[in-house]
Simulated scan of single mutants.
Amino acid sequence: MNVKKLGFCIVFGVLMIMTACGTGDQKTENGNGTEKIETPANQPETPETDTPIEDSQNPPKVNDEQSESTAFRNISVSGENGEYVVNGEARVFEAVFFYSVEEGHEYLIEETKVTADEGAPAWSPFELKISIPEDQLPINGTLTLELYEKSAKDGSVINETFVKLEEFGF
């Protein structure tokens, strides 16, 4: 019994040492006599360009984060104070998708059905003209557009994409 525990402790200790030794930067020769420092796979590389990092307080008005969505892309928003135009492309089943607008606590525009010019697999451009009365705009809050499809199987919401229309009071 003690031999098993001792063996386990030795194996565990060796694994811990090997793991600890393998987590730092690795230096390698790159053929011309200089060393290159390789970043481990679990750490992000630092960009070597002078590209500015976007200010999280002032994100761009174009929502190109559709890598997560297979249904919506190239979404842009223009307008303010309750009057918005949203342009983008949709690749949706039978050319149908839905949208709603909420401000965090309530829906200001309930589910609205949209029919695109073409259905999947084509990307079809769309334009939404959204108008919210001034007396319904939040004093402090964010108006968010929710774009989505409904499953042909069970009618559940799929391929949701959220787009910020405007922030108030911040």
Rank of each mutant, 00 (worst) to 15 (best):
N140P: 05
T46N: 04
E111C: 02
D117V: 14
D25E: 09
K36I: 15
T115R: 15
T34V: 09
F168H: 02
D154E: 11
E111I: 02
V3M: 04
E118L: 14
N63D: 15
G155Y: 01
G155R: 00
T144Q: 14
F93I: 11
V77W: 01
T39G: 12
S56I: 14
G82W: 02
E134T: 05
I37G: 03
K150D: 05
L147W: 13
V163A: 08
M18L: 15
G155I: 02
L145R: 00
L128F: 05
T51R: 01
Y148V: 00
G33C: 11
I75P: 00
D64V: 12
K113M: 15
W123L: 10
F97C: 02
C21Y: 13
F93R: 10
T39L: 11
N63S: 13
E35Q: 14
T142K: 14
L147H: 13
E80N: 07
E94F: 11
Q66I: 07
F93K: 11
L108T: 04
N42K: 12
T19A: 15
V77R: 00
E38Q: 09
V11L: 04
T70K: 15
E118H: 13
M1Q: 12
E45A: 12
S100M: 06
P133Q: 02
I10S: 01
A120V: 07
I10M: 01
Y99N: 04
E54P: 04
Y84F: 12
T161H: 13
A116Y: 05
K27Q: 10
K61Q: 10
K153Y: 08
E83R: 06
T49K: 00
T161S: 15
K113F: 08
E38Y: 07
K150V: 01
G79A: 07
P59G: 06
A152S: 09
N32I: 13
E160P: 12
N63R: 11
S131D: 06
S67I: 15
Q43Y: 13
G79N: 06
Q26C: 10
E110Y: 05
S156K: 10
V86E: 03
K36E: 14
K61R: 14
K150H: 02
Y107P: 00
I37S: 11
T46F: 03
P60Y: 10
A41H: 13
L15C: 11
I109A: 01
N140W: 11
Q57T: 14
E111Q: 09
P52Y: 02
E102G: 10
S69G: 07
N159R: 05
M18I: 13
P121C: 13
E48D: 09
P121F: 12
Y99H: 06
E146F: 08
I139M: 09
E68K: 15
T28Q: 07
S78R: 11
V114P: 01
T144K: 15
L165Q: 03
A71F: 01
Q57G: 13
E29P: 04
K4Y: 10
D55E: 06
E160N: 13
E65S: 14
D117I: 12
N81I: 00
N63M: 11
G33M: 12
Y84N: 01
N58P: 01
T142W: 08
T46L: 03
M1I: 12
